[in-house]
Write a protein that binds this DNA or RNA. Structure first.
Lengths: 361, 361
DNA sequence: TTGTAGGCGTTATCAA
DNA sequence: TTGATAACGCCTACAA
């Protein structure tokens, strides 16, 4: 197009970057030598002097390896993808942070994508990540009606589930998972309410497509039975959102769902739902704790500061992220490794949203 | 390991996927024809019959385009990166969601990465994204001491700043930005406190490396001057975190920072800090609103449910995300486009954390 | 220790 | 409209 600029400056920053060939020419060696000199793993194959010179030239030209070109050969990217169903739910960022910490220490970059609880979007994202060569995938978005696992299998991408498991039978044995012991966790909530003296307890469940919701629902029923109690009502929320929680709780309060006598306590499947429960109770003029005790699940950030402070089940988000990252790294290194399913034990955090039941009606 | 299953299933899922060459052979046409037939943009160059046949074969073989190989040629990936300083701060997810919505509608995939407020990590991420050919970048992580913009320039990646601007003089004119009018916003808080009767007002500022913190600090001082008031104290928090807020507020309460007479109100630079402010006040036995009024900034999710509900400045997170995405798309399509700097107008949301000052002690 | 050649999977540019 | 050929930038046997 234009005659080469006579300036000695590093070639007038055109939008086209230096390649290995440029470095080779400038350093007076062959491109493969450059490749060897610049790749830490093969540096040893090359004379120190040459390595030195090549490195200098590369620096001077501002050379950066093209991950795309390298990936085309190596089929690796040193990048891990994480799929999250809903970034707005504050329990995920702490988990992600733990994952990133472990992976960053191993030189991996972590890329997060939001599936928005949408199976089609999830498939698209997996495919996109796969064709961009992510080396592994952490899936926090497991839900019924998903082909995430089969996609990963087809693309040969190691994957680890986190927080949520796959529905039973959906190839759950084929993939490792790090989850919370949800059955046990909700049991802690029931025990706590019963110990306070509650007998008429309802459960506000999550969307039954995801394992946390199913397990907590089942765990609730089981633990109630253990105490010889019949649940007053079980309402499924449509999603793990504040608004779905409000809707479900409103239905419960207004008797729009099958229910026994009015409850004195609600074990809620998730803290996000609890925000909506508070909204619904406020709108109905009912006081949390004084009129109806409420327990949450997750101990997500900030619920210690809502009013009244939420009694909830704390999950080990940090351990969850770390374990999942470690397992993924291990399985990437050795694909034949036996799959493992880790269940982390949660604990009860008692705050102010639970109290003994009010006397009489 | 095992003898090949005699099943007629599609060729025993080997880890190697079908390529265009496979499809070409199977369909009896040349690879370039396959490429044309399968690429929606070039489909028209090919006979309908051929397109049909090729598509069928591709489906049958389970062919998926390799984004890496395609990217090597086209230098495009239909992927946009977003860099966020701290995913744990709940103001970002809603902004991200808005960005994703716009970009997804145009067929772009959005990948989020966490810089953790770390300049080195940010550089690494930009470089990694660049060499993976993201088509554009949205930076929510702008801060002093960063070479983000020069990196983008070197790699030729269009970028748009969001929420935070670059420090003045750091090539700010070279890049578009969609931010909040922070100066105006903090002024609304000051006006509100003054209208309630407060005269002894302190400012709890954010980390001065980021524009939101600087602008809110400057805006606070300016508006106080406008009202003829001298600030009682200005304390800089070390980061936009709950803990940094607690530390800074404790210092203020205990007189560990230069301060005039005890304040009756604090204008805080950010809602996350406010959580720490509440913590510090609780620890010191001071009541929010009753003893000291508190205003926040951002109206992040859930602050309407903390106790007392936070009076704060609501920013337009949705518009922010959408505008930034639109500008980025426009500049990607037409790189010569004039840069624009959009300043969104925030509004005051009055809740329960502010009240008239208590009658003198 | 270094150079040569070929290929990773796709697309752009020719020519037919 | 289709086919042949040559990149894109890097890596890696293999040969020297």
């Amino acid at each position: 197009m234009q005659p080469p600029a006579p300036s000695p400056a590093p070639a007038r920053a055109t939008p086209t970057r230096a390649t290995i060939a440029d470095v080779a020419r400038e350093a007076g060696v062959h491109a493969s030598t450059v490749s060897r000199a610049l790749n830490p793993a093969t540096r040893g194959m090359v004379t120190a002097a040459v390595a030195q010179r090549v490195t200098e030239v590369a620096d001077r030209l501002g050379w950066r390896p093209s991950a795309v070109a390298a990936g085309l050969r190596t089929r690796k990217s040193r990048t891990i993808g994480i799929l999250v169903p809903d970034l707005i739910n504050p329990i995920f960022p702490p988990i992600l942070h733990a994952v990133e910490t472990v992976l960053a220490a191993q030189g991996y970059v972590t890329l997060v994508a939001n599936t928005d609880n949408d199976a089609a979007r999830e498939s698209l994202l997996i495919e996109r990540m796969a064709t961009h060569l992510v080396d592994g995938l952490i899936l926090a978005s497991a839900a019924a009606g998903t082909d995430a696992l089969s996609l990963c299998a087809r693309f040969g991408i190691p994957a680890v589930l986190i927080n949520r498991r796959m529905p039973e039978g959906a190839g759950c044995a084929a993939v490792s998972a790090v989850t919370n012991d949800d059955t046990h966790g909700i049991g802690l909530a029931v025990d706590h309410l019963v110990a306070l003296g509650h007998r008429r307890i309802a459960h506000l469940a999550g969307p039954q497509g995801v394992s946390t919701a199913r397990d907590r629902r089942a765990g609730f029923l089981e633990r109630m039975r253990h105490h010889g109690l019949a649940p007053v009502a079980v309402v499924d929320a449509a999603a793990y959102t504040r608004d779905a929680g409000r809707v479900a709780m409103t239905a419960l309060l207004e008797g729009l769902v099958p229910t026994g006598p009015a409850c004195t306590a609600v074990a809620v499947a998730n803290d996000m739902l609890c925000l909506g429960v508070y909204d619904a109770m406020e709108a109905a003029g009912r006081r949390v704790a004084d009129d109806i005790s409420v327990t949450g699940f997750n101990d997500m950030p900030f619920v210690d500061r809502i009013h009244p402070a939420l009694t909830t089940i704390r999950i080990q988000h940090d351990a969850m992220g770390r374990q999942a990252a470690c397992i993924l790294l291990a399985e990437m290194a050795e694909p034949g490794l036996a799959r493992q399913s880790i269940r982390l034990v949660p604990e009860l955090v008692i705050r102010a949203s639970t109290a003994p039941p009010a006397k009489g009606p």
